[in-house]
Amino acid sequence: MPGAAQAQEGAAVGAAARRPALRVEHLSIKYGDVVAVHDATFAVDEGECVALVGPNGNGKSSIVMGIVGLAVRGGRVDLFGSEAPARNVNWTARHGLTLVPERRHLYPALTVLDNVVLGCYSWTRNLRKARTSAPYERALALFPELERHFRQRAGTLSGGQQQMVAIARGMAADPRLLAVDEPCLGLAEAVSKRVYQVLGEIHAEGRTLVIVEEDPRRALQLATRQVEVRNGVVV
């Protein structure tokens, strides 16, 4: 598989063409005695859309959790040229990488607007500045169908709407690299298509995307390259 070969050689190939956004070297993650990821090495260049594919339970999500710092990791992660400290989610959030996590992790008791505006926290502490900023307005405009739910509590929305809010929150952070973990888990086909359509728009703006996707067909619609993960190993 050409994509896989490219992934193995990592930055060496990519760097010639473009600047690397993310470089992962010898990443390994363990939960207790269980090894979830073993020695993963790959790189993502700026402007790329890379899909992490592979069967469930093979460590795709763990890789992403390790990169952003939500899981304890071994190995090295470089983000836009600087080394990311381990176990520090806030650092990655402030250095241009925002995760839209699996199962969304919204703030259920807060309104949709508050959920989205909190995305701005990664670059400002000023509520007024956040509310008048371009990324926030762009984020709210991503899914016009959300508009009539803006003042509703996020916890009362349907799964599809919650996924949209999660993506909008991620975009309010104005990330240079947006990582999306299993965006279509538990969603109907029509909603999944809508989600991918918007992810496509986001990529078209020139943002780098990393998408964890279980369904390879869906991933291929958008991804410029695939990194395949099997049994906790990048192949």
Binding site: V89, P108, L110, L118, L127
Partner: peptide, 25 residues
């Protein structure tokens, strides 16, 4: 109600992962 850091307080209580990924300590 009126500050982003106040909303971050609420977010911290609602979801650890959700708060962390937008940079809330």
């Amino acid at each position: 109600r009126y500050t982003l850091s106040g909303k971050a307080v609420e977010a911290s209580g609602e979801s650890y992962v959700g708060a962390s990924i937008v940079g809330i300590d």
